[in-house]
Design a protein around this nucleic acid. Sequence first.
DNA 1: GATGAATGAGCTTTCATTCAT
DNA 2: AATGAATGAAAGCTCATTCAT
Lengths: 205, 205, 205, 205
Amino acid sequence: MDGEVKKKQPGEKKERRRLEIITGALKLFARKGFYATTIPDIARSIGMSVGNLYNYFSSKELLAQAIIRHISAQLGAKIRVVNESDLSSREKIEKIVTIYFETAQKEPEMIDFFLRIYLSNREVFREGCEGMICVNEFVTEIMIFFDDGVARGELRNQDFFSAFGLFMGYLGGMVFLAGEAILPKPLEAYVDEISTNIYRALKAE
Amino acid sequence: MDGEVKKKQPGEKKERRRLEIITGALKLFARKGFYATTIPDIARSIGMSVGNLYNYFSSKELLAQAIIRHISAQLGAKIRVVNESDLSSREKIEKIVTIYFETAQKEPEMIDFFLRIYLSNREVFREGCEGMICVNEFVTEIMIFFDDGVARGELRNQDFFSAFGLFMGYLGGMVFLAGEAILPKPLEAYVDEISTNIYRALKAE
Amino acid sequence: MDGEVKKKQPGEKKERRRLEIITGALKLFARKGFYATTIPDIARSIGMSVGNLYNYFSSKELLAQAIIRHISAQLGAKIRVVNESDLSSREKIEKIVTIYFETAQKEPEMIDFFLRIYLSNREVFREGCEGMICVNEFVTEIMIFFDDGVARGELRNQDFFSAFGLFMGYLGGMVFLAGEAILPKPLEAYVDEISTNIYRALKAE
Amino acid sequence: MDGEVKKKQPGEKKERRRLEIITGALKLFARKGFYATTIPDIARSIGMSVGNLYNYFSSKELLAQAIIRHISAQLGAKIRVVNESDLSSREKIEKIVTIYFETAQKEPEMIDFFLRIYLSNREVFREGCEGMICVNEFVTEIMIFFDDGVARGELRNQDFFSAFGLFMGYLGGMVFLAGEAILPKPLEAYVDEISTNIYRALKAE
DNA sequence: GATGAATGAGCTTTCATTCAT
DNA sequence: AATGAATGAAAGCTCATTCAT
């Protein structure tokens, strides 16, 4: 009478489909922008009908919001690993920069969506992603990294947002420049320089 | 110095009208985004007919490109003044940060357009603004600032783009956070902290 | 009286479900109109799946037609009681008016469906409810009332439809005005006046 | 300096186009219903592009509201002529019934729109036609007819809406029956009988 | 130069209906 | 009998752009 009843858990296969949509839409949005990507585009790219797509996400905006939550969770999880290690702040910075750039290299759509869709089309996220709630998991990990560093005496105690803006603005800026094919060297080649810059900016004393 | 023939310089009044369009469109684009702003919107906002507007800019994209060039020129000019002064690099950084934040405060549409329209809707600038040519004047001034600092031995010699990404990514990130009303303090209150962070990251030794 | 085999009577439980659908759909149609009511709406409102609903009614139109037949039967039955009484025509008119208004008050969806769905969306009833066959039971009772009155010498002998149009058009018009909250008095307050008007119009001499 | 300036009166030709749309849309709405008539249908029927139609009416609902106002004005004007004559109430009733039926015969779309679109799809008129304001001109004339009759002692003084419901419900009902091809005789053949019924119902004493 | 009516492709979204389970 | 995911045609509406005046 309590043997796990599998049936009727509202998802399972539906959850898989949902993820397919998110992944497919993410790619298109990142490549072409929010407005230049149409719902038929997305549906076609994953072999689903327009109507059915709407059974999963009842508007284009809601889909975009699900995507940013997805990205935030993915990136957050990767950084959590770093936070849970016992590296020094200097080493953690390098790890995080590496993670960010690797992601930008291997799954460019994730970072691109973040930079070009989420940060720029605020009207799309106004209702449903107030403040930073849709990006909460990611921000939280950066906050933990920073607080830990301060607690250990490795980083200067300053307004979190000042440090956050430096860290994320810098990385975002570099990925943008890379995307525009302006950088003379490949992104990875900058890891050391950038980590050093960030560390110098944030370190104690 | 006054013999110049006024009439028939290919523009003059036309040039004035052109600037009106740029200024009006800039405001609307920055406020509502590229796609949500319509040509009739723009025409109406400056009391001009759609048809006539097309006599000045033959497409919405070309108008947007003219705007970003305009912004780049404005910001570039402000930074040139700093570069031409004989302040130390540390002081110049503070000046530039102040200029950027003041602009964000007083003419938010300029920075907003840069962050939300130019950086994000790349498809709009793909043809006509390859690389950073439309933003050239601004980038050049930052480059001059950096090279001077290095030449004077005040800044570490490193890849320019690494320094540029730090500087502009950081400032852009902070303005974004301010725009989202996430910052606990007003933007100006961060000038010192941020300038310090940037200087520490870039300084020699 | 109890030997009847319960199982396998081609309906029984099926008949009960059918009625549930009719009642539920009636409410929604009357409230929101034919086109604004969706099949999923209806299914949800009675806790049935869309697929299964189609086992009972193979199209939205057929469902609407079943509903109007249902209403006609209900109203017809109520009027039959009046016809079978031995009241005078004057009294019968008053009874019928009262029944109509009471129904409009207590089960507004019945009258509303009649006025707003059946009378207006003729395209829905074009095939399947030609003429007045779907509303036959109701019309028949009005006809009986009229013929009786004429036979008894209480009502003037005239074209039935002229009398029918007066009777039903009048009542429908009043319910409409009531629904629009235009009437200064509650509907019941008009029973006497209206019955008098109808009687004067139809009475012999 | 005061010779009538024709230019720039906001309409003229535009007004003509507007009327074309109203007339064309009226026909389609009356024939197929509000929801079954599409904007492309309407545009095609008058040889205009969809986009341009929206320059005249910014929504389907607003178009429908313009139509009912148009109809009300037309019918109101016809009845006004009767009101301004010095016929007896009995004769006026006959005139009005004749006008109504003639209109139903010659321009059936006007009466049909009134009965099937305006009266039934209230949601369409909820915002913009509150109460009876869109149908004001017509109702006013009926009110004048009634008040005059009472003032002259020809009609019984009773609640106006009771009389209005009788008059208009009756006529509407008859046109409906005619439209359903249920009447054994042509509509005009009923004028006398109906006028008599109405007169008997309303007359003094 | 200036006007704004006109075009029409294209967008997001809806929904009756089907069908594999 | 029952489910609800899937389909896809079609709807209302928008807007960059053109062009006759």
